[in-house]
Design a binder for these strands. Structure first.
Lengths: 205, 205
DNA sequence: GAAGATACCGACTAAGCGGTATCTTGTCAA
DNA sequence: TTGACAAGATACCGCTTAGTCGGTATCTTC
């Protein structure tokens, strides 16, 4: 009944991964709710049937993007950087400096994928919120742990609360990205991060 | 041809204001793109015809919400508070403390209306971006001016850049709200703001 | 090589969307 | 009192949306 022009060779994992990538881009550009499955499909060569074979609903696709694309992206980088510095202050400064150096149009245009989804989805869908929260928590935890070790080795002021400071640092970063994004200004983003550096330096013992 | 059950008395300004209020709530809950005109109308007793009499498009309605509801809400408060303190540090601390004290479920649930719209709309619609940017700029400006005056009167450290610091403070606040919102935790929000207080205190001469 | 499972295809559906057209009614100035 | 216009009402339109379904092609297993 219908003409069948299918892919000759099959590669389910590739198909799934293509969908995740395309969905990630679409969500980054439009947000989750305004993300269009038709557009995602148009940017891959995947059919609607294949999509719904791999993901039960649009929601499932979105959650998979968070857990399998956004999460790993963020955690790996921070974990590694802080692991290879014995002094957490240097490690944090290095990470911020890296952000300042690599700041470009696309960061300023789309902002932080994590923050975007938090602002849009966390009040609307509890599963999204929890998924995003897991990432935030492990991010904060990595920073807090580094600060604690720094306190133990006498490199970070002892009269501070690592957990709270870590939370504030993460919050500030998201804030800087958000403001830079709205100003459409790489310079504003960088100036904002420079102030965060000042704050971080003030944590040194 | 059509049955006409209309409002007996007319009050165009009230109608317009009702629409703005209902649109504000709907946008706060669902974001702009997912905000439904039908739902907005259902929450007022206004007809679609009346809506489109007052606002040309959904976009126009959104822009009016930003300029006539969100903007004034924010600016008034910060301007007044900083005006009545000769010491900007005290003024800022007072504002943060007020935020900490008045933190409740609804702040944590919906977050900052301004930040929500920035993350969602600024990459998608240049008019939205500019409208939001005007608010951010005047917010940053109020803080920066207060800091400058503080420097002049010797209450704020002279070796700092008021404009950059103001930017960072605003960014941090948005970040704190955003993280508190995702954690669904008033306590986390408050802890985050407490750290901002520490930073602000460090600006004193 | 047959059978069963997995992967994939694309036309279709129902609902919701923003927006429009055409109408009536309230208001107020002349 | 009446004419003009602002304000409001409602039915309707075209379009997009997420999701479904019957069917087919490929792969794996025995």
């Amino acid at each position: 009944m219908t003409t069948m022009i299918q892919r000759k060779i099959r590669n389910p994992e590739q198909t799934r991964s293509d969908l995740l990538d395309a969905a990630y881009s679409e969500i980054l550009e439009s947000g989750f709710q305004a993300a269009s499955l038709e557009r995602i499909l148009a940017n891959t060569s995947v059919s609607k049937g294949a999509l719904y074979h791999h993901f039960g609903t649009k929601r499932d696709l979105g959650l998979a993007v968070i857990e399998e694309v956004i999460g790993p992206q963020l955690e790996g980088r921070w974990f590694n950087m802080l692991a290879q510095h014995s002094d957490p202050i240097s490690g944090l400064l290095k990470l911020i400096e890296e952000k300042i150096a690599s700041a470009d149009e696309s960061v300023i245009r789309y902002g932080c994928p994590l923050n975007n989804l938090i602002q849009e989805m966390s009040p609307l869908d509890e599963s999204f919120r929890q998924s995003l929260q897991k990432i935030i928590e492990s991010w904060v935890e990595v920073v807090a742990e580094a600060l604690k070790e720094g306190q133990a080795s006498g490199k970070v002021r002892a009269d501070t609360a690592p957990q709270d400071i870590a939370l504030f640092i993460v919050a500030s970063i998201e804030g800087c990205v958000g403001l830079g994004k709205n100003a459409q200004s790489v310079a504003a983003y960088q100036r904002c991060l420079e102030q965060l550096k000042v704050y971080i330096q003030s944590l040194a013992a």
